[in-house]
């Protein structure tokens, strides 16, 4: 998980670690289940060391990390503002699969169409899982929106697989 995400989730108000985790869970829905609590605290500590977060300790049980109240430093504020303005986007890594098909075909390692079918099965299972999760969500929740994004991306990938299939079927017919 990116440090900036944690930082930005604290921008609203100073919060305890457990409050932060609850907020993340709410936004991610079923995807948040997979989130590792330890990883969040590791990130918080890192941010604190980098001077982007300041920690106010509550009076009692000072040592317990989830009792700490985290707040943004001016540097932290600055970093969040920059991050919001960024336009970075996760890169779809399709080149690998594409090269896999070419290599398999040229060296006779496997039938590219079998690879496509296998891959499709895998993507369909993922789509099915995402779809199931989406159907279980109330329709306008934060998580539903995220799941729709996942479903749409998987659909795009499946459509590309369809294009691969057509292309390789065509190549086979020609040769």
């Amino acid at each position: 998980m990116q440090q900036e995400v944690i930082l930005a989730m604290l921008a609203k108000e100073a919060s305890h670690g457990y409050e932060l985790r609850a907020r993340l869970r709410d936004a991610l829905g079923p995807l948040g289940e997979a989130m590792n609590a330890g990883q969040v605290y590791v990130t918080l500590t890192r941010l604190e060391k980098a001077g982007l977060l300041a920690v106010e300790r509550s009076a009692d049980d000072a040592d317990r990390s989830d009792r700490k109240v985290y707040t943004l430093t001016p540097n932290g504020q600055q970093r969040v503002t920059e991050w919001i303005a960024e336009v970075s986007w996760p890169k779809p890594d399709l080149a690998e699969f594409h090269l896999k098909l070419i290599a398999a075909a040229s060296a006779g390692l496997a039938d590219p169409l079998t690879i496509v079918d296998t891959q499709r099965r895998e993507l369909l299972r993922r789509l099915r899982d995402a779809q199931r999760a989406a159907m279980a969500e109330p329709s306008r929740s934060n998580a539903a929106l995220l799941l729709e994004g996942i479903v749409l991306r998987l659909q795009a990938d499946l459509r590309w697989l369809e294009a691969c299939e057509k292309n390789w079927t065509h190549r086979r017919r020609i040769s």
């Binding site: 995807l31 989130m35 499709r120 995402a130 998987l154």
Partner: peptide, 22 residues
């Protein structure tokens, strides 16, 4: 009909991996 996929069975449970959370 060229390919059959049986989609029933346990979920992968790795939804998080789909969005880069894992």
């Amino acid at each position: 009909l060229v390919d059959e996929t049986r989609l029933t069975g346990g979920t992968t449970g790795k939804l998080g991996a789909l969005v880069g959370l894992e």
